[in-house]
Design a binder for these strands. Structure first.
Length: 1128
RNA sequence: AGAUCCGUAGCUCAGCCUGGUUAGAGCACUACACUGAUAAUGUAGGGGUCAGCAGUUCAAAUCUGCUCGGGUCUACCA
């Protein structure tokens, strides 16, 4: 006897998950799935390194599911997919975590704790939750190489980063410059954007704001302004009045550092004649037209000026001329607040001009932006563009430097908690008022960032930093991006494309402790520097410096060389310049995003032989086969993170893309659409979910519920549904199969039944299966797993389970082990086996469980795991579109009949005589004839009759084919549509007979073709009908005595089967059935005895009027006693 | 503020690219049925101004523009 298929008492997905996981671990299934493809073409995948200093959440499960399913799919497609894992180990979140844990702040590092100790703490914290992550990886079925991951803090990794930095340095792409960064004077430190985004840093504060007046200088460029003033002299006053540009600021302390005024090139500006409300002097001012109402009342336009004086409440004003911002470009103005420290020479540029830039808006202020390059990123940028220089009149403590007159030494904000601090901004404003240089001064409430440690307002301040000149290859990056396959497309074109268009140079510098040190050593005056590219190079330089500079220098690093590339060790190293001067390391660390963006190279490390040979890609094997990546996948939040840094580095280093396809998945929200956060307590624990529902159900839910790039509202109920609906159905189908296969000993031992010997329904489900394989493969190839999953879902539910199995049930338990039965087994087996392959990428555990349960009996595959097989390939020769179409007809027809039965309340078990189906053309008839038997047995009728035109019974309905007609007719569509609606039955048959019909529309002739309308049957007079689309079905509901007898017989069979089951008999047990007094049922029993006996496997069936015991049952309101026993 | 995604039944989503006349599934709810797959299944029912407004068109859930609401990213700026 052949081995038996395993049977189960119930579906236990978590149990299947852990059992299969154990087996994978024992058999090293993952390693094998890779090594089996040795020599096959590679499919390259990069793992974006997670940071293991926090617990993994459910949102990590979705992107890892996507990564995993693509890699599994490609492996099954015959590619070799290596997946090296990795850990992101540097960076601010780790440092902040450690600081919090130790209860220290940044300032304490190096004081209360040494840098060495601090970094040791970071190193320990980094992989704190590595176990949890590894465990999640395993339990969710994510196949990735955890044995040999790349770790960003390791020397080999950092060394590669150094080499890459050196390559950039040699290309002239690495430079040091000032940038304007958020800076906390109170804490004496720059702040990262991350720190600035801490909750509570933005506060609403009231600041003194001022609209300052910058006096225009009259020259040929500005003549049009002055001329407009001169040509409109005020009554009683001569011409030659002053013209001012109005500019608003909420930080008057930046006004002494003003070097420019920026306007929007296409914004409308006006020159307004009016008075200074403080000094009451007549003035002319320039501001954006759209902002006039902020400063002037409409009713005072062109008001009488002669009466204006100190006591006047209303400010008269008059527009003298209008122009665009671009007309102002280059106009010069007098410096607002000249001091010794702010002479034009000290600016290092050509200041006090009007500049153009797109960032100017007319939302606030005057539409003219006061530009102090030192204290605003936009200001700095536009200042550089125009070369107006830079003035930094405030020091790092937040107070004015010497040489700013009465303001020198005063803090620009109350940074020292002085009790009687006098706001310098007020004093500056007062000074401007007195000097006829302020147009409006008022308190203004706005939101302003504060240092999250000191609670003091942040300044934007110029700080030294190292940059990568990404802007140099911006166009190339844009061009390369166009070759990348983005999923979804819009993220690449929109979010990422826009980001590239507006890119700025990459600020690499971080003044922190735990990270990759910048490998640049400089002389004190900055005139000489070296960028180190490898450990060997550094060690050589260390020795050289020791020889040149003296025996004490670097003496700790002479013997073994440098052993750890982190701070503080690298900072102790002093190198020597070609001219013999000492060089010290630039103190910065580099942005952690460089760490991860460089992983394509650094994950392998440097190959010293290639390095010595001068290769421009000196990375260890298998780098050459693993660049660029075919596929990467992370959350959309990485668009400007990892996706960008990978792209930037590949473009900069090798003028190439780093990845060919990138999938960015959306966020996982809670069921109400809120972001998951610890604070709200709505985070979902992935371990709990997997333990409760299994990884497969979780993965299937995440993938099929919504496109991966849409944000997903995570709801446990959805997983339950997937579990019940999809896996439950598939499990049931499997159970059904093995129930009978075990009885019959089916083990696929027989040769496949020939195609032409298989019944229609087998050919149908196999054809549908091939179609499914085709569609699923296309969807996966297009990185559309959601579509793939949903296709499989509906196939399993609607086609396989609810049609094929339902209709074929009898074939499995009835009769001998015939060709038909074997065909049924082979067909269903093939469906199950193919589905196990199809779902393997998404539901890896269940797929393997199903596969091995089947394969352990049949041994059709030599490999032990579905993940080692090749993905199912569609056999297109089996696809029969017409067959699939007529099966749809059968399904529709059955559904219609069942609904008719429902209407007249005749149960399906009661046979009926016939149904009528009107057929509109011979093709439809022949299709229906081929599936007639299926319909008959499904709806329990004896006959199907077809009604054709000739019978004259059918009442027809006509409707325009809008798609066909609309193209031809256009605007006449409505009229024609109305005409068609008015067609009589005679009109319709004439059209059918002649193939065309002449109409007159708006007194123009029009020939209507038969294919331009849709004709359907509407009604069969005197019958109950129901229709769907072109299909109409009528049911004969007449019950003859014969039919009723048969109905009774079927009812009896049904009851006896139930009793068999209640008694716990085996499927194959033979029985003996005796009835008590049966009354009217006796006829049924006698007439249908052979049928009943065959159905219930009875050897004997008799009526015994003296039967005293047995079960009372009720057959169509006829009580009868029945006794069922096993045959002797 | 900019960019982008989303808005269709009580809930989760198809359909939109390529416009075509009763807008579909599943879940949930109600009723009835089925019963050798049974913690399954079928049928029927209620439930929609396809976020809103305007435009293009003979025809708009579908194309265009604007507005509103939600998410994310970037920025926070005079």
């Amino acid at each position: 006897m052949a081995a038996k298929y395993r049977e189960f008492s119930h579906l236990d997905l978590p149990g299947i998950g852990s059992a299969i996981l154990d087996r994978w671990n024992q058999e090293k299934a993952f390693e094998k799935s890779v090594s089996l493809r040795d020599g096959a073409p590679p499919f390259v995948f990069y793992e974006g390194p997670p940071s293991a200093n926090g617990m993994p959440g459910i949102h990590h499960v979705i992107s890892r599911t996507l990564k995993d399913l693509v890699c599994r799919y490609k492996t099954m497609q015959g590619f070799q997919v290596k997946r090296k894992g990795g850990w992101d180990t540097h960076g601010l979140p780790i440092e902040l975590g450690v600081e919090k844990e130790l209860g220290i702040t940044k300032e304490d590092i190096g004081k209360k704790i040494t840098v060495e100790e601090y970094n040791q703490k970071c190193r320990e914290a980094v992989l704190r939750f590595k176990d949890k992550w590894d465990s999640l990886t395993q339990q969710m079925g994510y196949w990735v190489d955890l044995q040999d991951p790349y770790i960003t803090f390791e020397n080999t990794y950092i060394e590669t980063l150094w080499w890459l930095l050196q390559r950039l340095y040699k290309k002239g792409l690495l430079y040091k410059s000032v940038s304007i960064q958020p800076y906390s004077p109170a804490a004496g430190t720059g702040l990262s954007s991350h720190e600035l985004n801490q909750p509570g840093t933005y506060k609403d504060v009231k600041d003194t704001s001022a609209v300052a007046m910058f006096k225009a200088i009259r020259n040929s460029d500005s003549e049009f302004l002055f001329a407009a003033a001169d040509n409109n002299p005020r009554a009683g006053l001569p011409g030659g009045e002053e013209v001012f540009f109005l500019a608003w600021t909420t930080t008057p302390w930046t006004l002494p550092s003003n070097l420019g005024l920026t306007v929007g090139p296409s914004i409308d500006y006006v020159l307004v004649r009016t008075f200074n409300p403080y000094t009451h002097l007549p003035i002319n001012v320039v501001l954006a037209k759209a902002l006039l109402p902020k400063y002037f009342k409409a009713e005072n336009e062109n008001a009488d000026e002669t009466g204006y004086g100190p006591d006047a409440k209303q400010l008269p004003w008059r527009i003298l001329t209008a122009f665009k911002g671009k007309d102002l470009e280059g106009l010069r103005y007098e410096q607002l607040l000249p001091y010794a420290a702010s002479t034009p020479e000290k600016t290092g540029g050509d200041p006090f001009r009007v500049l153009l830039d797109g960032f100017v808006t007319v939302e606030d202020g005057t539409g003219i932006v006061h530009t102090a390059p030192a204290f605003g990123a936009d200001d700095y940028k536009v200042g550089r563009k125009y070369g107006i220089g830079i003035l930094t009149l405030v020091d790092r403590e937040g107070k004015f430097v010497d040489g700013v007159g009465e303001f020198s030494g005063r803090y620009v904000k109350n940074y020292k908690d002085e009790k009687d601090y006098v706001d310098v901004n007020v004093d500056i404003s007062v000074k401007l008022k007195k000097e006829n240089r302020a147009f409006k001064v008022e308190k203004y409430e706005h939101s302003y960032p504060h240092c999250w440690r000191t609670d003091k307002p942040v300044l934007y301040y110029p700080l030294d930093a190292w940059f990568i000149k990404t802007t140099a290859i911006k166009d190339r990056m844009v061009a390369l991006n166009k070759t990348i396959n983005w999923k979804p497309k819009a993220t690449g074109e929109g979010r990422f494309g826009n980001w590239l268009e507006n890119m700025v140079d990459w600020n690499l510098s971080r003044s922190r402790f735990w990270g990759t040190p910048l490998p640049i050593w400089r002389t004190e005056d900055g005139s000489e520097e070296i960028c180190i590219g490898s450990i060997a190079e550094l060690n050589a330089e260390i020795r050289k410096a020791n020889e040149v500079l003296g025996a004490e220098v670097n003496k700790n690093y002479l013997h073994d060389g440098i052993l750890d590339l982190h701070k503080p060790y690298v900072d102790e190293v002093v190198l020597v310049s070609p001219t013999g001067k000492p060089m010290r390391r630039e103190p910065d660390l580099i942005d952690v995003w460089f760490d991860s963006g460089a992983m394509p190279y650094a994950q392998w490390g440097l190959d010293y032989e290639k390095l010595a040979a001068g290769s421009d890609r000196p990375f260890k094997a298998p780098f050459d086969q693993n660049f660029p990546a075919d596929f990467i996948c992370e959350g959309v939040d990485q668009t400007r993170g990892w996706f960008y840094t990978l792209h930037a580095l590949a473009s900069l280093l090798y003028d190439d893309v780093a990845y060919k396809t990138v999938v960015s998945n959306g966020l996982v929200l809670d069921r109400n659409g809120n972001k998951m956060s610890k604070r709200l307590g709505n985070v979902v624990d992935p371990f709990q979910t997997i333990n409760q529902f299994g990884a497969d159900a979780t993965r299937w839910y995440l993938i099929t519920n919504a496109s991966p790039w849409d944000s997903l509202k995570f709801d446990i109920e959805g997983i339950k549904e997937v579990q019940r609906k999809f896996f439950g159905t598939l499990y049931n189908t499997y159970q059904f199969f093995v129930l009978y296969a075990n009885v019959d000993g089916f083990s696929f031992a027989e040769p496949p039944v020939k195609w032409e010997d298989r019944p229609e329904i087998d050919r149908w489900i196999l054809s549908s299966l091939q179609t499914l394989v085709q569609q699923v493969t296309a969807a996966f190839d297009d990185y559309e797993p959601t579509t793939a999953g949903r296709l499989i879902d509906s196939f399993v539910d609607e086609q396989l389970s609810n049609w094929y199995v339902r209709l074929c049930r009898r074939r499995f338990w009835k009769g001998d082990y015939s060709v038909d039965k074997i065909s049924a087994y082979q067909t269903l087996y093939e469906c199950l086996e193919t589905i196990s392959g199809l779902i393997a990428p998404v539901a890896p555990f269940f797929a393997d469980w199903l596969f091995s349960n089947l394969n352990n009996v049949t041994h059709r595959h030599e490999v032990a795991s579905v993940h080692h097989t090749l993905y199912p390939k569609a056999d297109t020769s089996r696809i029969d579109a017409d067959l699939e179409e007529r099966m749809r007809l059968a399904q529709d027809a059955s559904s219609l009949v069942l609904s008719l039965r429902k209407k007249v309340n005749i149960k399906v078990r009661q046979p009926l005589q016939k149904i009528l189906i009107p057929v509109l053309d011979p093709a439809m008839k022949s299709r229906l004839e081929k599936v007639e038997d299926l319909i008959k047995s499904e709806v329990n009728v004896k006959a199907v009759e077809y009604l054709t035109d000739a019978d004259g019974f059918i009442k027809k309905k006509i409707k325009p084919n809008f798609q066909a007609l609309g193209k031809r007719l256009g605007a006449k569509m409505k009229a024609v549509s109305n005409a068609i609606a008015g067609f009589s039955q005679a009109d319709i048959s004439r059209l059918e007979k002649e193939g065309s019909y002449s109409l007159e529309i708006d007194s123009e002739p029009l020939i209507l073709q038969i294919q331009e309308v849709e004709i359907t049957s509407e009604d069969i007079p005197g019958w109950m009908v129901s229709s769907k689309g072109a299909l109409t079905v009528a049911l004969d509901v007449t019950l003859t005595p014969e039919l009723e007898q048969e109905g009774n017989a079927r009812e009896l069979v049904n009851r006896i089967q139930k009793i068999r089951k209640d008694n716990g008999y085996e499927l194959t047990d033979r029985i003996r059935v005796r009835f008590g007094q049966a009354g009217l049922l006796e006829t049924s029993i006698r007439q249908f005895a052979p049928y009943i006996k065959a159905e219930v496997l009875a050897d004997e069936l008799e009526v015994d009027n003296n039967l005293s015991d047995g079960i009372e049952i009720d057959i169509n309101e006829q009580p009868v006693t029945v006794k069922v026993e096993k045959s002797a």
